[in-house]
Design a protein around this nucleic acid. Structure first.
Lengths: 175, 175
DNA sequence: CCAACCTGATTGACGTGTCAATTATGCCCG
DNA sequence: CGGGCATAATTGACACGTCAATCAGGTTGG
């Protein structure tokens, strides 16, 4: 195969079979996410979003974090986190406090209610992951799933922002 | 391994490694979905939801479908479709007409604007699938991804509603 | 010092998804 | 026939996500 043909293949559209796999993959992931979410909701009245936020806070020193560190830690946009914290604060799962060091900043603190809710949710949630994901795959398939995910992620990171040299200094990666 | 131990393993929580793979898998799928969605949006002003609806309608006879068939065809809840059609109708992508055969029913018709928008979107979208998914994987990995998705889907269907013998007759599959 | 700029965080508008309730029609059986 | 139930579809309320705009508080160079 010449460089030319390879280049050309790159630009071709997916075959029917490739497209079928793509749809299977993305729709299955979506179905899983939705089932997990509904179980979490019914067993603990937490959403997946609540869960990741509470998980991060539980593991943080002092069960508190700067809002932007939290966002970076769980890979969320700041505005998304801000909205979500608002909803969580209304349910008394977290509190927001002013930050001593930088008075623009906010610190998010795990509230007692939040810690309890998280504690109650974690076993059912892990059980659901086991039941819906781990138990569905042979050990080989599980490894394969990990490799596929890693390859996709790496490729995505490579492709998403080839150069980001304008305002901020060129950082290496962002996780 | 006795039946007992096997039973017991079933109930165990995922190991750290299994959990890592799970998170990789679900977060990567989510990141892919989000990137695809944003490309689709910027290249065509269609959302992924719009796209699947328009795709189904394009392939339907007469470019029209009963609302509930459409919902079943793309695997959406009816209420979700109803809301989405409302938004699409506002943008003149589809029209809703009364159904002659059953006056409770509605028929969804692909509008000219919708057909054009879909036509314009399809090549960029397929290119994005190729670039973000197919090109990220070796042929082996692609096959593995398909197998993993199939296994997960099958397990999910098996687990989700073990028995649904009440109102509707026990249908085989739903695609 | 202070104007210009950067950064942390929030807000509002709007599209999207789910659940429960509702409306309207079809259908069946007593 | 007509009461009761199933079905088609919509609606309202609310949670969630994204984008662009905003606000407030730091930082820096002239």
């Amino acid at each position: 195969m010449t460089e030319n043909t390879r280049q050309q293949r790159r630009r071709q559209l997916p075959t029917t079979e490739q497209l079928r796999i793509w749809r299977d993959f993305i729709e299955t992931a979506e179905a899983l996410r939705s089932e997990l979410s509904s179980r979490l909701q019914s067993e603990s009245s937490l959403s997946p979003g609540d869960y990741v936020v509470l998980l991060a806070l539980s593991e943080a020193e002092g069960r508190r974090m700067r809002s932007s560190e939290l966002a970076a830690g769980i890979g969320w946009e700041r505005s998304r986190l801000s909205h979500h914290l608002g909803r969580m604060e209304r349910r008394a799962l977290v509190r927001r406090e002013e930050c001593a060091a930088d008075s623009r900043g906010a610190e998010v603190v795990l509230a007692t209610t939040g810690a309890e809710a998280f504690g109650d949710a974690t076993v059912p949630h892990l059980r659901a992951v086991r039941e819906l994901f781990v138990d569905a795959l042979t050990p080989d398939e599980l490894v394969a799933a990990g490799e596929v995910a890693a390859a996709l992620r790496a490729h995505l990171d490579r492709v998403r922002e080839p150069r980001r040299s304008r305002t901020s200094r060129p950082e290496g990666g962002d996780r």
